[in-house]
């Protein structure tokens, strides 16, 4: 068989992992490591990146990715591969609130174009941009699996469904 499923290794494992992250972060990551079989702590890489992204105001720096690699005994390139592959990881700074608006088919049929226009007008930025005061980043996303509430968007971890321009105003005005 040509294909073999094996964890990646690093030539130079870091001995003292306590120099990385705070004790709270380490214990959060360790909880994820505990879910996977011994020898497979790299399975926790996605969780570790998500935890650190939240901790770092919504994005991942090269230094953070290197620390995650060191903590999980992975080559840094393997962590970069993961961080660049999945759309929820941000590799540039983002605003305090990441507004992810779905424009896929069910939302489109229910007028997501108007929601995007409204958001762009209200925030004064285009899709993919961050407001000057760093409060909002506006992002177009693919189907978020809430088509029954189309059009919809996600801000942070929260879904907002059955949107209309007035409702969007209310939601955004209610945020810090």
């Amino acid at each position: 068989m040509g294909f073999k499923s094996e964890p990646m290794t690093t030539m130079t494992p870091l001995e003292d992992k306590n120099s990385l992250f705070t004790p709270e972060i380490r214990s959060q990551i360790d909880k994820w490591i505990g879910k996977y079989p011994a020898g497979w702590k790299q399975s926790a890489v996605m969780a570790a990146l998500s935890i650190m992204q939240d901790e770092n105001g919504g994005w991942l720096s090269r230094e953070i990715m290197d620390d995650v690699a060191a903590y999980l005994d992975m080559p840094p390139i393997a962590v970069y591969e993961v961080a660049t592959f999945y759309s929820m990881y941000e590799l540039e700074p983002v605003g305090r609130h990441k507004v992810c608006v779905c424009t896929n088919i069910s939302c489109m049929i229910n007028g997501s174009d108007k929601i995007v226009d409204h958001l762009e007008g209200k925030l004064g930025v285009k899709l993919g941009q961050t407001t000057e005061d760093n409060r909002f980043t506006l992002k177009e996303v693919e189907c978020l699996g809430a088509c029954g509430g189309a059009p919809m968007m996600q801000i942070g971890k929260q879904y907002y469904e059955n949107l209309a321009p007035e409702k969007v105003d209310e939601i955004l005005d209610g945020l810090e």
């Binding site: 068989m1 040509g2 294909f3 499923s5 964890p7 497979w40 790299q42 399975s43 926790a44 890489v45 996605m46 999980l72 992975m74 393997a78 591969e81 993961v82 660049t84 592959f85 999945y86």
Partner: peptide, 14 residues
């Protein structure tokens, strides 16, 4: 993806 990699499909079989 569960194995901590980018999610690229494997060739099948196996």
């Amino acid at each position: 993806s569960i194995e901590g990699k980018k999610g690229q499909p494997r060739f099948k079989p196996p």
